[in-house]
Amino acid sequence: MIQFNKENFYLIREKFRLKKPWDSFVVFFLSIIITIPLFIVFHQNLVDPQWLFGLDRILLFIFVFAIVYGVIYALRTISIICLGLYILMLIYGSLFGTFNFNSVFDDYNSMIYSMNNNPFPEDIIIAKLLPFPNKNEILRAIEYKNPKVRNFAIMATTRHFKHIRGYSEYRNLIQCFAVFKEINSRWNYVNDPKNGDYIASARESLLYFSGDCDDHSILMAACVRSIGGTPRLIHTKGHIYPEILIGSKNDLENVNYLIKNVLFPEESRDKQLNYHIDEHGQIWLNLDYTAKYPGGPFLSEEILGALTLE
């Protein structure tokens, strides 16, 4: 009985084994795909001796590749079978589902980019510290159900990023970033009256796209919420600005790639994303009027309170 099973095993293995040189080609291809992210991890965490022409990193890449290649080659039959099944799943997903070849390519790009361009600066965890100033007036001014507010937000989604393909799970965020782009490209800062705090409604700010930081925050929050985004307002010493809910750190990797490579490549070149983490571990990205891209630099870091629009 044992002999029979062994014979069957060898017959199955021979049936699925690729002929030379195709087996070596597939193993080489898989090894490159796996080596690149592993190399980036080692590159970032090992001390750089700064050899001439980066020879130490070249040798490191060759070393990692040799180990990966050896392991995959030793298990090449199993590896090739798994690869074949994975490709069949992607074909099925392309025809009947949402996860397809483009999704894999986007996820791999996001992973590689995020490893090489760390989107995670120092985490700043905040909680509601003090009562939010003018809370009731601000909530009334965020007229996200007003038709004019929603129509403006919809207009922004047709003007910016409408033709971006893929990233279906981040479609709503992309549309909210379109709203950010439209508002911030038109905003004109105007002070409140002396000895007074004027709270303009979202509908009012649509007339001239002018006002101070709380007027901008109200308009941004109203428009983002009107198309399904989750905004909140941050109160600092002498300043209020809006943020948008991104999700987890895994979501931040993909959003980091989207912002810096697809949506705002010029505005965010060589810059970091700036965000806060709330008490639940959720990430919120800065949408201040001073920012040229979502996640731009904070104007002020002394957090006094947060007002979330559920």
Rank of each mutant, 00 (worst) to 15 (best):
F264R: 03
E302S: 10
N116C: 09
A291P: 11
W187E: 06
L258K: 08
F180W: 05
Q50G: 11
A66F: 04
I246L: 04
F25R: 00
Q50W: 06
H235E: 11
P131W: 07
L52K: 14
Y241F: 15
T230H: 14
V71F: 12
L55P: 00
A221M: 06
D251V: 08
K15S: 07
F29P: 10
V262Q: 12
W22C: 00
S24D: 11
S94F: 01
L207C: 05
R165G: 01
V64Q: 08
D214Q: 12
E310N: 13
P193M: 03
I154M: 04
Y208L: 02
T98P: 07
P294E: 04
H160K: 02
I246S: 03
I33W: 08
L85N: 11
L38Y: 06
I234Y: 03
E137Q: 15
S248H: 08
I2R: 12
L258V: 09
K194V: 13
I234H: 04
I246P: 03
L30I: 05
H235W: 12
I81C: 01
F63I: 01
R159Y: 00
I138A: 12
Q44L: 05
V41K: 02
F180D: 02
E266S: 13
L11H: 07
I34P: 12
E204L: 01
P242E: 07
I40T: 04
T35R: 08
L95M: 09
L90K: 01
F99N: 08
I33E: 06
L11D: 10
L309Y: 14
I125Q: 13
A74L: 13
L90D: 09
F177N: 00
A156Q: 08
T230P: 07
A200I: 02
L30N: 05
D107H: 03
L173D: 01
E243A: 05
I246R: 04
I126V: 15
K249I: 10
A202H: 01
E253L: 15
H280R: 15
R203L: 14
V224R: 10
R225M: 01
G247H: 10
E266D: 14
D251F: 00
F9Q: 09
E7G: 13
A306K: 01
N151D: 15
T236G: 05
I303S: 03
N116A: 15
D251S: 06
S205D: 00
F39S: 00
N146H: 14
L258A: 09
I78N: 08
L309K: 04
Y170W: 01
A306S: 12
A74R: 14
F9C: 01
N250I: 10
I32L: 15
I80Q: 02
D23L: 09
I244R: 08
E243G: 06
M220Y: 05
I124S: 11
K148H: 12
N188F: 06
F61T: 07
G166W: 02
